[in-house]
């Protein structure tokens, strides 16, 4: 039996759909809304829904064997897990955005608002740019509008939210998509089962 942590929300639904197509279906999505754990003995899987940012924690600590999580969270938290497959769903970009017309002339410390403070810090360290990182937990787009920060580092999907708020992307840090991750110890004991699931998922993600 493989224990798989799925992120609550749209990404979890998409992931569950992919797993079902790969013959690892278990229960229905509507069931998942009410129950915390659903199981399919025939498919040999047990799913549980957790907060997206907690998926890697469950996997790293071995409470889940496998998990599906965005690359943004893996880059931000750098958990000690295997990253076995790019599921190519939940695609978006980690970007730097600012008010239209903003130009960083490097004359003062750049104020950066973000939920992804580690990613932002590493990115600016790689450029040798001195920054003041401001940790926010939501509505990041507000920060430059209210003068809280010069730029933001955030996930951009279609870019609509940015446009609606008169913001624009000024740099792309990395592409993001969902990944299949595994606990390093569990993998040593269940590698055959895990590799089979990874390969089946690999086939349906390439369809």
């Amino acid at each position: 039996m493989l224990n798989i942590a799925l992120p609550k929300g749209r990404l979890g639904e998409q992931a569950h759909e992919l797993l079902t197509r790969a013959c690892y279906g278990g229960g229905s999505l509507s069931d998942m809304g009410r129950k915390l754990v659903i199981e399919s003995e025939s498919a040999g899987v047990r799913y549980f829904l957790v907060k997206p940012s907690d998926v890697a924690i469950y996997v790293e600590h071995g409470a889940a064997d496998l998990g599906i999580v965005g690359k943004d969270i893996l880059e931000e938290d750098r958990p000690d897990v295997y990253e076995l497959l790019d599921l190519k769903i939940g695609r978006c970009r980690m970007c730097v955005a600012a008010k239209k017309g903003f130009e960083d002339d490097g004359s003062s410390v750049l104020r950066v608002a973000s939920k992804f403070t580690n990613i932002a810090e590493r990115y600016y360290a790689s450029l040798g740019r001195e920054v003041d990182i401001i940790k926010l937990n939501g509505s990041i787009e507000l920060a430059p509008l209210l003068g809280l920060s010069d730029v933001i580092v955030d996930i951009v999907e279609s870019g609509k939210t940015l446009r609606d708020n008169d913001l624009t992307v000024i740099a792309e840090i990395m592409p993001i998509s969902a990944r299949l991750i595994a606990n390093k110890v569990v993998y040593q004991f269940k590698s055959a089962e895990i590799n089979e699931l990874r390969d089946s998922l690999g086939v349906v993600t390439n369809d």
Binding site: E60, H61, G62, D80, Y82, N183, K184, V185, Q188, F189
Partner: peptide, 29 residues
């Protein structure tokens, strides 16, 4: 006994074999 070439060892220090041990039910090496 498994072979696993993903086990990492810095070449400045390690020169040959690398070992990693796991117990079922534990979450870390």
């Amino acid at each position: 006994v498994l072979i696993d070439f993903s086990i990492r060892g810095d070449e400045d220090y390690y020169s040959g074999l690398l070992l990693c041990g796991y117990l079922q039910g534990k979450s870390r090496i």
